[in-house]
Design a protein around this nucleic acid. Structure first.
Lengths: 113, 113
DNA sequence: TTGATATATTCCGATAACGGAATATAATGG
DNA sequence: CCATTATATTCCGTTATCGGAATATATCAA
């Protein structure tokens, strides 16, 4: 068997740096037309359209026609699965923080002498 | 220009479903030797080794020699960047929840009449 | 040393993904 | 209808990626 088709789930959609930028921009500036993304990101129009196509296929964005423009909207709930997946490892780095905090407190106590 | 090399950052490393499984397993069961992963995941040994190679390159796992075994350990902090990235969109879906809650409360009030 | 076990690496072949260039499609204005 | 603007799609070349099979490397045990 060969490589599995990947651009079909959210994790792969966000693997592309350019696509992450698109997502961030839509989050910060609200719904945007393709042209706006093109100038804001300095990418080619076809490149942006293709990235948007991937994001749309996965449901991370949706489109609305507005005259001759296509306005893209972030469907952020689709990113929740990523957040939740990563969150399950939170314990690891928070434990790490605990240990650091503990050490700091021990040090503070010893200096208080 | 052609496709950009991707298996060099965390987001791409976790784009592969099999690699996510490896990460989850290491998180749940602690440090594991390659062979354990192989039987637990039902993947081929070379496949597992290659996935581990990618994860190691990105720093998501580290290795220790133990006899003829290689014990892999999850370096979960490396996943924090993913968590943080996704977290920045939390507002969107929590707002959504607010709206749902609000609607439910309105409905409850109206029925209370 | 020799043989077995554990793991990594290499060499495929198939296919997916990316960017660029050109082109197609759609909508608007005149 | 025609030209223009906005966007999508297609085609192409290059490179990455994945799994499988075979092989290399390392370590242990006798």
């Amino acid at each position: 068997m060969a490589r599995a088709p990947t651009t079909s789930d959210v994790f792969n959609a966000i693997a592309e740096p350019g696509r992450r930028l698109i997502i961030e921009l839509l989050s910060q500036r609200g719904n945007l037309a393709v042209g706006t993304l093109v100038v804001a990101l300095g990418m080619t129009q076809p490149t942006v359209s293709k990235h948007l196509g991937v994001l749309r296929k996965v449901g991370v964005v949706s489109v609305t026609k507005l005259g001759q423009q296509r306005v893209y909207r972030l469907e952020a709930e689709r990113l929740k699965v990523v957040h939740d997946w990563a969150k399950q490892f939170e314990q690891h780095w928070s434990h790490q923080l605990d240990r650091i905090k503990e050490r700091a407190e021990r040090k503070a106590r010893s200096q208080r002498v």
